[in-house]
Amino acid sequence: MGLNTLDLTNRRGIITGAGQGIGRALALEFGRRGGHLLLVGRQLATLTETARLVALEGGTTEVLVEDLTTPGAVDRIAQTVASWRTVDLLVNNAGNVRAGRLELTTDADVHSMIDLNLTAPILLTKTLLPLLRQSGNARGSILLNIASGIALVGLPFYSVYAATKSGIAQFGEALRRELMGTGVHVATVYPGATDTAMMTSQNAGSDLGWGRRSLDDVITDVMVGLAAGEHEINTAPEGRREMQRLNISDPLAVDAALAPSLEALELAVRDHRSI
């Protein structure tokens, strides 16, 4: 659905959750294209390693250790980039997951997912939007939100996570329409199961519909789609896309397809936790 190609070189901006996984991989991609990036995350050691790897690719970085859910975090990020001449990239990637039956999920885990996956990126985008708009007057700014394939097919034992990821997807869709003509390109990524550290505690495999793609393949899809000016970038494998299409045309058929494996799926995902 993209109409105009995007120049991804020499971007200056913020990547949250930059210490590992998709966040680190995107930092490397923008770094090798000459980017200057503020790497935001909770662990200094992992951010420092990302910064080292970005430098090897030719990019430059600043590091900010920050829990996005704490009071003042968004303002501290904004203050860090306030002196930059250009801010034309924001990647809302930080997120966490806690799988399992809803009634067994603690209130703290519910709040943790909502606060980091949904509230934080909305507030960060709101705060940085004036800078993105100002920088977008030249060649266009990029707002990249990392949702999930679960935003397209709500899967059992991921009800709260699905709520947050479908929320950020709809946030992006509405904001894209709000920002038409401003020079801010809003894109949403829908990763399927990806081989990252976030998935190490999840034991569902291909037999349960959770075949994982390599991080390199997913990031390639993201960068190709972004460069092509796409607004919706789906990195799911074809098998999952079949379920996504079925979920549009006949959602009860998806229910029926999942029903026989519910018990096995619950056992496989009940320890999936990245909080």
Rank of each mutant, 00 (worst) to 15 (best):
A45Q: 14
A45C: 05
T46N: 06
L47T: 08
T48I: 02
T48Q: 15
E49N: 11
E49C: 02
T50P: 01
T50E: 01
T50A: 03
R52N: 10
L53K: 10
V54D: 02
V54C: 04
V54R: 01
V54P: 01
A55F: 02
L56A: 15
L56M: 11
L56P: 01
E57Q: 15
E57P: 03
E57N: 10
E57W: 03
G58C: 03
G58Q: 05
G59D: 09
G59F: 07
T60W: 00
T60E: 12
T60Q: 14
E62W: 01
E62K: 11
V63K: 09
L64I: 06
L64R: 10
V65T: 15
V65W: 06
V65D: 08
E66M: 13
E66T: 11
D67L: 09
D67H: 14
L68A: 07
L68E: 04
T69R: 10
T69A: 13
T69C: 08
T69F: 02
T70I: 06
P71G: 07
P71S: 13
G72N: 06
G72E: 08
G72C: 08
A73V: 09
A73Y: 12
A73D: 11
V74N: 06
V74T: 15
V74P: 04
R76V: 12
R76M: 09
R76N: 13
R76Y: 09
R76Q: 14
R76L: 10
R76G: 12
A78K: 01
A78C: 12
Q79G: 15
Q79S: 14
T80N: 12
T80A: 14
T80L: 05
V81E: 11
V81G: 11
A82F: 08
A82P: 11
S83W: 00
W84P: 05
W84F: 12
R85G: 14
R85S: 14
T86Q: 14
T86D: 09
D88R: 10
L89Q: 06
L89A: 07
L89T: 05
L89F: 07
L90I: 03
L90K: 02
L90A: 04
V91T: 03
V91Y: 04
V91S: 01
N92R: 07
N92D: 10
N93G: 06
N93S: 05
N93D: 08
A94L: 00
V97E: 04
V97D: 02
R98W: 03
R98Y: 05
A99G: 10
A99I: 04
A99C: 13
A99W: 04
A99N: 07
G100M: 11
G100Y: 11
R101M: 12
R101L: 14
R101W: 09
L102Q: 06
E103I: 13
E103D: 15
E103M: 13
L104T: 15
L104I: 00
L104K: 15
T105D: 07
D107W: 08
D107V: 12
A108L: 12
A108M: 05
